[in-house]
Nucleic acid binder design. Structure first.
Length: 122
DNA sequence: CTTCTGACA
DNA sequence: TGTCAGAA
């Protein structure tokens, strides 16, 4: 059913609704967009219009944040995940890589502190 | 009234 | 991240 998928991609929600649905502040939601984690449409006025997919993504982001992940780490995960599914031979891994990375980070924060977002410089 | 951008503590 | 200002 791609009709459903299409509707889910329809950006019709103002930031106020997203705030209620995600329990986040406008500041945070805009910040995540700034970081490239979500891409709301920009219809009337210049107002951000979010889709259900965006809500989903933001909810996920929130979840990762709760798990102690940093914005930059989440960015890495999403950048790999959005690439495609599993038929490209450029990297070979996408979703699997993302999951690996995620669990890896999850284990990492379990015993260490997550301060830096990039690779270890030392 | 709701949202936007930029900026400061 | 919260919050204020000025504008749309």
């Amino acid at each position: 059913m791609k009709e459903k998928d299409l509707r889910r991609s329809l950006s019709v929600l103002p930031i106020g609704t997203v705030m209620k649905l995600t329990s986040l502040t406008a500041r945070q939601i805009r910040y995540y967009e700034e970081q490239g984690l979500v891409s709301p449409e920009r219809n009337d006025g210049n107002r951000r219009m979010y889709s259900l997919n965006d809500i989903d993504t933001i909810l996920e982001i929130k979840d990762y944040l709760s798990d102690g992940l940093n914005i930059s780490k989440i960015k890495s995960i999403y950048e790999k995940r959005k690439k495609d599914s599993y038929k490209d031979n450029s990297d070979g891994l996408s979703d699997q890589e993302a999951r690996k990375l995620l669990s890896d980070e999850l284990l990492n924060i379990g015993g260490l502190n997550s301060r830096d977002a990039n690779n270890n410089s030392f």
